[in-house]
Simulated scan of single mutants.
Amino acid sequence: MPPSEPDPADCCGEGCVNCVLDRYDEALERYRAALAAWRVRHPDAPSP
């Protein structure tokens, strides 16, 4: 399951080093990489 997208109001707009939007982007990238690897291992599985 992909990560939940944060609400835009969750970001304070101060340019934090560990912004919730940056963490979401990183989590989404990890999810996409894991999904791609799973699809390689399960080529006959239906696409979601």
Rank of each mutant, 00 (worst) to 15 (best):
S4R: 15
A33T: 06
A27L: 06
L28R: 12
V17H: 07
V17I: 06
D44L: 12
C19P: 01
Y24D: 01
A27H: 01
D22G: 05
Y24Q: 02
E5K: 15
P46L: 10
A27M: 07
S47M: 08
P3T: 07
S4Y: 09
R30S: 06
V20C: 15
R32L: 11
S4I: 14
L28S: 03
N18S: 09
R39I: 00
C16N: 07
S4E: 15
A36S: 11
C12R: 14
C12E: 12
V17L: 12
D22H: 06
A33F: 02
M1G: 14
W38F: 13
L35W: 03
A36F: 03
R23F: 02
D7G: 13
G13N: 11
E5C: 14
A45M: 05
G15H: 08
G13I: 03
A9T: 14
A45H: 14
Y31S: 04
N18I: 03
Y31H: 14
R41A: 15
W38I: 00
L21R: 13
D22P: 00
E29W: 00
C12D: 15
Y24E: 01
D25L: 05
Y31A: 05
G13P: 05
P8G: 10
P2D: 11
S47N: 06
A36K: 11
P48E: 13
P8V: 12
D7H: 15
A33W: 02
G13W: 07
P3N: 11
W38G: 04
V40I: 11
E14C: 15
M1D: 13
G15V: 03
P46C: 05
D25A: 15
G13T: 04
S47L: 13
P46I: 02
P43Y: 05
G15A: 10
L28V: 01
A34T: 07
V40W: 02
P48N: 06
S47E: 12
E26K: 12
R39N: 08
D7A: 15
R39L: 06
W38Q: 07
P46T: 07
P3S: 14
Y24P: 01
A34C: 01
A45N: 07
Y31Q: 00
G13D: 09
C16E: 09
P6G: 10
L28N: 04
H42F: 06
W38C: 03
P3R: 07
G15F: 05
A37S: 08
N18Y: 11
A27I: 00
L28F: 04
A36N: 03
A45I: 02
D22Q: 09
